[in-house]
Design a protein around this nucleic acid. Structure first.
Lengths: 342, 342
DNA sequence: CAATATGCTGCATACGTATTCACGGCCTGG
DNA sequence: CCAGGCCGTGAATACGTATGCAGCATATTG
C-alpha cells in the first residue's frame, strides 16, 4: 500500500496537469475541459483520494459542518438526554447527511462561550441551538450575536429581533387545543402541570396561556382550575401530582406541559390508586415514543420532530448560503389515545 | 467591534513577541517563560482569541474530533433511530466533552467508504462504529482497515483479529440468565424471538446460544421450544408473534432478542387477548426507557449504556494516544419487572 | 490580416498554525 | 578568562488546498 496519503499534487503529477487544475476539476468547475475533468476524477478515484478537510477549510473559510448544541439543565452523566431532543437529533443528522454537511454534536452549558468555541474557532459554519430558548437571560446574548453576524438557528420560542431564525411550535394553540379536547370530554376541574413562568420556560408558559384561554372561553370558574410547577422530567411530574394532592385540589383533568411530566403523573396516580382515564384524564405534549407504550397510552399534542429537524437545517443553510433570515412556526396536532377517555 | 477575527499574529504584535512564542504560550509550553506565557494568555483572553481549528489541524495533523457512525438497516427518514443507540450517543457525547474532544455524528450506509470519508479526509482522528458488527460481510473490511493503521472502535460482537478494539456485552451470558429466570418461574414452553443467524445478527445469535444452553441444562424437551425470526424493531416483534401463533406453537415464555421486539410482542399479545404475565412471560434485552413505561413493565437484561459509551471513547483515545489496543466485554444485568410474573 | 474574444491551463500566493533549527545571553566550572 | 551548557526566543518553513491573475492557443469578427 501507499505509505502516504495522496494529495492533489500526486494527482496532478499523474494527470500531467497542475495542482490548480486538479483542485478545479474535483470541484467540477466548468473552467476545466470536460475530458480533462473526467480523467482527473478517475485518477482521484483510483488513488482513493480524499480532499483534506483541514486544508480545504483553511483556504476557503468554509467547513461544511454544522454544530448542534444541546443545552440541558442537568448535564448529569446519569440523567438521559431529553428524548424529544434525541429524536430531533436523529432527523437533523439525516438532513445534514442528505445535504452533504457534517454534524457536530455537543452538550453545552449556557454559561460557556459556545459561539466562540464553535463558529469563531472555525469548527462549524453555523449552529443549531436546542433547549437554549429556555434561558431567558440568554436573549441579550443572542441579540449581540446577531449584530456580530453569527450564524445560528434556534429551536423554541419566538424571538423578537429580526435578523434571526427560529423554528418552533405554536405552543399557545397547542395548549388551547389540548384543553379544548378535555373540555369536550366533559372535564371541568383542570390542573396545568408545568412551569408557567415565561422567564423560566417560555414554551410552557405559552401552553399555559392557551390553557387559560380555553377555560375563560368556557366560562369555567377560576377556582376550579390550578397550576403546579414542574420541570420537564418524569420525577418532577410525580412530585407535582403529590403537590396537587397535598394542596387538596381534586382535578379531573391534568394538562401536562410535556410528555415526560405526564409519564411521571401517570406513575404517581397509579401508585395512589387513581384510575386514568376513569377518575382523571391526563394529556401530554410532544408525542415521544414512550407515549405509545405507557399505560394507558397517552393522548398528547404531537410536534413533528422530523419536519422540525429538517426545517432547522434548511433555514440555517439558507442563512449561510443566501444570507436570508426566515423563521417557521409549526402547528401541533392532537393525538388521541386512551389516557383521556375519548 | 473588530472587523476581523484576531490571529496569533495579532497577539504576537500586542505582546511584543513572535508568533511562534504565542503558539507555544497558548499550548502552555514550558519552553516559554512563565511570565511571558501568562501575559500572552491574558492578551488572548482579552481579544477573545480562538485558535483556528482548520489551521491547527492542517499543521498538526490532529483534529481532536471523533466520529460516531451509526449503521442502520433502514435509514428511512420516518423511522426513528434505535433508542438504544440514541442513549449510547448521549453518553458518548458527554464523555467526549469531558475529554475536550468534539464529536461528529453521522448515519452511515455500510456500503459507503466511511473510513476514507472521515479518517482519511482528516475530519476525525478516530471512529466509533455503532451497529456495524451486524454486517458480517464487513469483517474483512475491518481487518483490512486494521492493517492500514485505521483508528476505530466497534460496539458489538467479539472480533477475531488482535489489532482492534471493541466493546460489547456478554450476549451468551445474557441469553442464558434471561432464560434461567423464566425457567425458575416455572415456565416450560419457550420461544426465542429474533434472528439466530450469526451472519445476520451475531449478537442475537449469541443470545440464542445462551437460550439453548439453559434449556439443554434443564433437560427441556427440544420440541417444547422454538425460534422465530425478527429484526430489532417493534413491527417485526408483532409479526413474529403472529408467525408463532400461525405455527400453532403455544409458548408460555417469550425470550425476545431486544426490547423493541418485546414491545411489539406485548402489543400483539394484548391485541389477541393473551394475558402477560398470566398466560405468557415476556423478557426483553437492553433496558431502554420504554421498558419501564410499557404495560406491563418489561423484565429485561440491562446493558449499561452510560458505561458502554464512556468505555468506547476511552478505548479509542487510548488507541490514538498510546497506540494500544484493548477490548472490553460487559456483563448484562437482570432487571425484574412485571412482564414475567416474578 | 489585424483585432478581439473565448476556452483552458499554470503560476504564484494566502489561509493560520505548529515546529525545527539556530542564536544570543547568561551561568557554571575549570 | 574561556569552554560548554541551558534557557528563552525568533526566523523560517511546511501542512494541502483554492483562487486571482496572467498567458497561450484557437476561434471569431470586421
Amino acid at each position: 500500500m501507499a505509505n502516504r496519503k495522496p494529495t492533489s499534487l500526486d494527482i496532478a503529477y499523474r494527470a500531467g496537469v497542475s495542482q490548480a487544475t486538479v483542485s478545479r476539476a474535483l470541484r467540477d468547475s466548468p473552467l476545466v475541459n470536460i475530458d480533462t475533468r473526467k480523467r482527473i476524477q478517475e485518477i482521484a478515484e483510483e488513488l482513493n483520494y480524499q480532499v483534506d478537510r483541514s486544508a480545504s477549510s483553511l483556504r476557503s473559510g468554509l467547513t461544511r459542518t454544522l454544530a448542534l448544541l444541546i443545552f440541558e439543565d442537568a448535564p448529569d452523566a446519569a440523567c438521559p438526554i431529553n428524548p424529544f431532543f434525541l429524536n430531533m437529533l436523529g432527523s437533523i443528522t439525516r438532513e445534514c447527511s442528505a445535504r452533504d454537511y457534517d454534524l457536530l454534536v455537543s452538550m453545552q452549558n449556557p454559561e460557556e462561550d459556545w459561539y466562540a468555541r464553535y463558529e469563531e474557532a472555525h469548527r462549524a459554519d453555523g449552529l443549531i441551538l436546542l433547549g437554549y430558548g429556555d434561558y431567558i437571560d440568554s436573549h441579550p446574548t443572542l441579540a449581540r450575536l446577531c449584530e456580530n453576524g453569527a450564524h445560528w438557528v434556534l429551536w423554541g420560542p419566538r424571538l423578537e429581533f429580526s435578523q434571526a431564525s427560529y423554528v418552533g411550535c405554536d405552543n399557545r394553540l397547542g395548549g388551547y387545543q389540548a384543553t379544548q379536547h378535555l373540555l369536550q370530554l366533559g372535564r371541568r376541574r383542570f390542573a396545568f402541570i408545568g412551569s408557567n413562568a415565561p422567564e423560566q420556560a417560555p414554551e410552557f408558559a405559552d401552553r399555559y396561556i392557551g390553557f387559560r384561554e380555553t377555560l375563560e372561553e368556557a366560562g369555567i370558574d377560576p377556582a376550579a382550575s390550578t397550576q403546579v410547577f414542574a420541570e420537564s422530567n418524569e420525577a418532577s411530574g410525580r412530585l407535582a401530582v403529590q403537590a396537587l394532592a397535598d394542596r387538596g385540589f381534586e382535578a379531573d383533568a391534568l394538562v401536562c406541559a410535556s410528555d415526560l411530566i405526564a409519564l411521571g403523573a401517570l406513575h404517581e396516580l397509579k401508585k395512589r390508586g387513581v384510575d386514568v382515564p376513569g377518575d382523571v384524564s391526563v394529556m401530554g405534549f410532544d408525542d415521544i415514543e414512550a407515549a405509545t407504550f405507557c399505560n394507558p397510552p397517552l393522548s398528547t399534542m404531537r410536534q413533528d420532530v422530523t419536519l422540525a429537524g429538517a426545517t432547522l437545517v434548511e433555514l440555517l443553510l439558507q442563512q449561510l448560503e443566501a444570507g436570508s433570515f426566515e423563521s417557521k412556526v409549526m402547528e401541533p396536532k392532537l393525538i388521541v389515545r386512551a389516557s383521556c377517555g375519548a
